[in-house]
């Protein structure tokens, strides 16, 4: 046996294997940075770890964001619901406030007038849109009769055409079959309003010599007592006078729009009330005051009704021979 006959390569490998940890331990003992041979590995590892870290934190972040989003979504839904509820409540409060204002105005008007009025609510409109009528929730049980006037604080609405026990059909001024005896407030010229089914009126059978100007207020004549005297109907928007003929007519814009009617008054008794006396005091009739102060542009229209001389009562239009001979008069009107 050859004791010295050994494999040199094996010995070198053993030495290297044994020496490497020793060298490594010795090098670690030394302070400072990592040894050169570790650098690539540590860079790679740190890169990997960083990536993993980023990845997991990303996932965690996304997950938590998603989880939060679910929560936020729920919260958002609940807040939206709450917001809608609050808005609805606010809307109903606003509605109540407006209703309260309207009703207060109506009550104030009712208290300050001599007329016997009955408040009514609009419950329906006409079946046929080519006719302008409404139904109110008062009938003959409450004393309603045909031709009784229907008004609001602002002006004339129409009159009753038929009554049932607890409701009544009211034809609006703007219906083509509705007609009301009227006066031009400034000059006391007398005529008859006819609806045109297009939200406007015609003031017909005015005598040719009558002074009527754009902007004049048209009011009720108060004859027959279905309406109070001097209650606003509308404002003249144009005057039409042909070259021939004995009468003239004017287009009138009604002061009350049918499209926003909710509560009205039935004139049970007009009590000979004359609103012509109250125009200058601004009594509860803002629109009428506006008509009188702002839109009368004629030379003699500057004064209010109190300064306008009260004319002697004019004859009924139906009794005027010149008018009745020119155009057949409709049936008696309120």
């Amino acid at each position: 046996m050859n004791f010295f006959a050994f494999d040199l390569r094996k010995i070198l490998v053993v030495i290297a294997v044994v020496a490497l940890p020793i060298i490594s331990i010795n090098m670690k003992r030394a302070p400072g940075e990592a040894p050169w041979y570790q650098k690539p590995f540590s860079w790679t590892i740190s890169l990997m770890q960083d990536s993993y870290s980023n990845f997991t934190s990303g996932v965690r972040g996304t997950t938590s964001m998603y989880m939060n989003l679910i929560g936020i979504k729920r919260q958002n839904q609940s807040l939206l619901r709450e917001n809608e509820e609050l808005r609805a409540q606010l809307g109903s409060i606003e509605e109540l406030k407006l209703e309260n204002q309207r009703l207060s105005k109506l009550l104030e008007f009712r208290e300050q007038t001599k007329m016997k009025l009955l408040a009514a609510k609009v419950i329906a409109r006409d079946l046929n849109p080519d006719h302008e009528s409404i139904r109110i929730n008062r009938g003959y049980r409450e004393g309603l009769r045909k031709l009784q006037g229907i008004i609001t604080v602002n002006g004339v609405v129409g009159y009753v055409v038929s009554t049932q026990m607890d409701s009544a059909q009211v034809i609006l001024l703007t219906d083509r079959s509705a007609s009301i005896d009227a006066l031009v407030q400034r000059t006391r010229a007398r005529g008859l309003t006819n609806g045109r089914s297009s939200g406007s009126l015609r003031l017909r059978y005015l005598e040719r010599a009558d002074d009527v100007a754009v902007g004049d207020a048209v009011v009720t004549s108060g004859s027959k007592g279905y309406f109070p005297k001097g209650f606003p109907i509308g404002r003249v928007t144009s005057v039409r006078k042909t070259d021939f003929g004995i009468s003239q007519e004017a287009m009138v814009e009604p002061v009350v729009s049918a499209s926003n009617l909710e509560e009205v008054f039935v004139v049970i008794e007009s009590g000979n009330e004359d609103f012509g006396d109250r125009l200058s005091t601004g009594f509860g009739l803002p629109l009428l005051s506006k008509i009188n102060s702002g839109t009368n542009s004629g030379p003699s229209s500057g004064g209010s009704a109190s300064t306008t001389p009260k004319p002697t009562p004019l004859p009924q239009p139906a009794a005027t021979p010149s008018v009745s001979s020119a155009t057949p008069r409709p049936k008696p009107t309120p």
């Binding site: 849109p129 080519d130 083509r176 079959s177 007609s179 006819n194 609806g195 045109r196 089914s197 297009s198 409709p330 049936k331």
Partner: peptide
């Protein structure tokens, strides 16, 4: 009829909508 007036200005837009 005494109080009845012919329909001279129909509201065509209402007709169309209806």
């Amino acid at each position: 009829m005494p109080d009845y007036q012919p329909l001279t200005s129909p509201s065509l837009s209402d007709w169309i909508v209806q």
